[in-house]
Structure formats: structure tokens, C-alpha cells
Amino acid sequence: MSIYRQMLGEEAFQSLHPMLQKRYEISKGSLYASGMMKEIKTGKWWLVPLFRFGTRCKLMFPEQGNDIPFTLANVCRVGRNGEQQIHWERIFYFHKKRRYFNALMSFDSDRKIVKDYLGEPSILYSDLLFRVGMNGDLYIQSDRQRLVCGKWEIPLPKWLQGIANVREAYIEEKDAFSIQVEVRNPLVGVIFAYEGEFRIDENK
């Protein structure tokens, strides 16, 4: 059973759109997709040094724009403690530049949350909460976050956190998935956001 099915529970998972069920049922092997970001935007200009640092860790980047091609790879792994993990590799193609937004997720059965380690090497940790909307859409929201410094993880106060809100849906008439992501800080507003559409690459 996938970590996302465990997080949602059987009843909620079955209320997802069937194509979203197929996408988030991944518990072995891999899933590949590609599409186009209608818009990618970043925050205040003075955050650019932070975004540039993020490129070293495959987490965020300073570029923004419209109609940006991207690919997605979800690959199942087994952690050192035997837990099921899903590696997320998101690549955005800005002309000759490749920019990444990577993460490693697993399920905490005691706390009923998805654990999300962001970047490579990981520099940020976030609890993730999942819920299903009225139309079978999937909503994901970040909760408690920690700064990762090697073996040390330092809890971040709310005013330093980047609160993420994600909505993923399936568009029947386009036979495609839609994705909306916004990361916002209580003090500076939007840090990072993107919106686009993608399709599963069945041949990979």
C-alpha cells in the first residue's frame, strides 16, 4: 500500500478521482510525467540569494516565467530502517538551464503524516497533511517544519516557515493533471509558486 493511501485512509483514498488514485497508488517501481508550467514565480527580489543557494541543494531557484516545460519522476525506495520512501524529482527547463525541486517522502504511521525532506542534500523538513476535496481533487498542506543541518534538525517558528499549499486535480476534457503550488511566508508573502498541467508518460 502506498504511503499516500495510508495517509488518507481507505475511504478518503477511494473518494479521489480515479486517475489521482492511479497516480498516488505508487508503492513500487516508478512513475514519470511531463508537462508545461503555465507560470512559475518567485518572491521578493531580495530573496534571490536564498534562491541561488537553493539551486545547490536542488530546492527552489531564482528563475521565473511562463510556459516552462517540466518533468516529474516519482521513484520508490527503501530507507535504511526499511521504511517505504518516494523520491520526487521535479525538473524545470529554462532554455539551457535545468532547475530542480526535489524531495524524499515517507509515512509516519504514529502521527499519521507524510514526512517530507526537501532538497539534496536535505536542508528542510516538513510535515505534510493530505485531504480530498469535494470533486475528488487532492489538497496537500505543510505543517511543522525544521531546518536540517546534517544530523541536527532545528524546529522553525511559524514566522520563518514557508507554508506550502498544493492542489492537484484531473481535467477530463484534456486528459491531463493540473497542479497548483504556492509557498508563502507570514511576513514576506509568496516565496515560490507554480501552476501547470502534465500527463503520465506511460512508455517509461
Rank of each mutant, 00 (worst) to 15 (best):
A12S: 12
I123T: 09
S106M: 00
L128R: 02
Q85L: 13
E173M: 11
S126E: 08
Q84L: 12
N102Q: 02
G43F: 05
L160M: 15
V78F: 05
D201F: 04
G29V: 05
F101E: 03
G119S: 02
Y4E: 01
K174N: 13
R199G: 11
R111V: 01
E39D: 10
S178F: 11
K44D: 12
F192D: 07
H17W: 04
F94L: 04
V48E: 14
M105H: 12
N81M: 06
Q85S: 01
Y117Q: 02
Y139W: 10
V48R: 15
D108G: 00
Q14T: 11
G65D: 12
M134W: 00
I91S: 05
K58L: 10
W46F: 15
M105P: 00
P62C: 07
R56M: 13
C57Y: 15
G133I: 08
E11W: 02
V190M: 15
V183G: 03
L129W: 07
D175F: 09
R199M: 13
L104F: 02
R77G: 05
N185V: 09
D143P: 06
Q161P: 08
M134I: 11
P121M: 01
G54E: 11
K158R: 15
E83I: 03
T71S: 12
P18A: 00
G65Y: 12
Q14A: 11
M134V: 10
C76V: 13
L128C: 10
P69R: 09
M134F: 05
K38P: 03
V148N: 07
L187S: 10
